[in-house]
């Protein structure tokens, strides 16, 4: 049995500490120990992007990071997006433009979009595609996700959101 290590970190503004085995991945700490199950686990080897969170403001895969590596870090997960029960504009855009169907990949998409729009409030389609190239969706289709990101950027710039997508997505 390897010695446990103490980890202290902040998630969505709340301070947590836990005693973990060094082999525990960060996503397992978030979901299993801290009860923050909004972050999803897909491929567990860094390919699908479902587990993407923000670490000190940067989008990273929480499945290929050890919890001990996040000691002292500030994290943001999908639970940290909404405020006072109001969905974040990125989430509103994904709803309005049908940017999700089953929703499994959505937490990762949202966090990657969050990082993108922090750096680049008006990304072109190529920039959006590059930022989201590491996020896999198997059911929605990327066109409506692309629309959602354009709409999210417009909302965050204070522009009028695009009309909701009509009919079947």
């Amino acid at each position: 049995m390897t010695a446990k290590r103490d980890v202290s970190l902040t998630v969505n503004g709340v301070a947590y500490s836990a005693s973990v085995e060094p082999r525990m991945t960060l996503v397992d700490l978030l979901r299993g120990e801290l009860g923050l199950t909004g972050t999803h686990v897909g491929c567990e080897h860094g390919v699908c992007g479902a587990c993407t969170i923000l670490l000190n403001g940067q989008a990273v895969r929480s499945c290929i990071m050890l919890a001990v590596q996040a000691d002292g870090a500030e994290l943001m997960t999908v639970e940290g997006l909404s405020e006072d029960g109001q969905l974040h504009p990125i989430q509103q855009a994904f709803v309005g433009q049908r940017g999700l169907q089953c929703g499994f990949c959505t937490p990762g998409f949202l966090m990657s979009v969050y990082e993108l729009l922090q750096h680049n409030p008006a990304p072109g389609d190529d920039e959006i595609k590059e930022a989201l190239g590491g996020e896999l969706c198997r059911c929605t289709g990327y066109q409506s996700i692309l629309r959602s990101v354009r709409d999210a950027a417009a909302r965050l710039r204070g522009e009028v959101p695009a009309a909701a997508t009509e009919g079947e997505a």
Partner: peptide, 26 residues
């Protein structure tokens, strides 16, 4: 040695690598 872990941790997860000691240089 563990640095960013973007190649090593996937190998650990899949148990393609099973080092007895991880030296985290982060």
């Amino acid at each position: 040695i563990l640095a960013g872990g973007q190649s090593l941790v996937p190998l650990l997860n899949m148990r393609l690598a099973r080092p007895a000691v991880i030296i985290d240089v982060g």
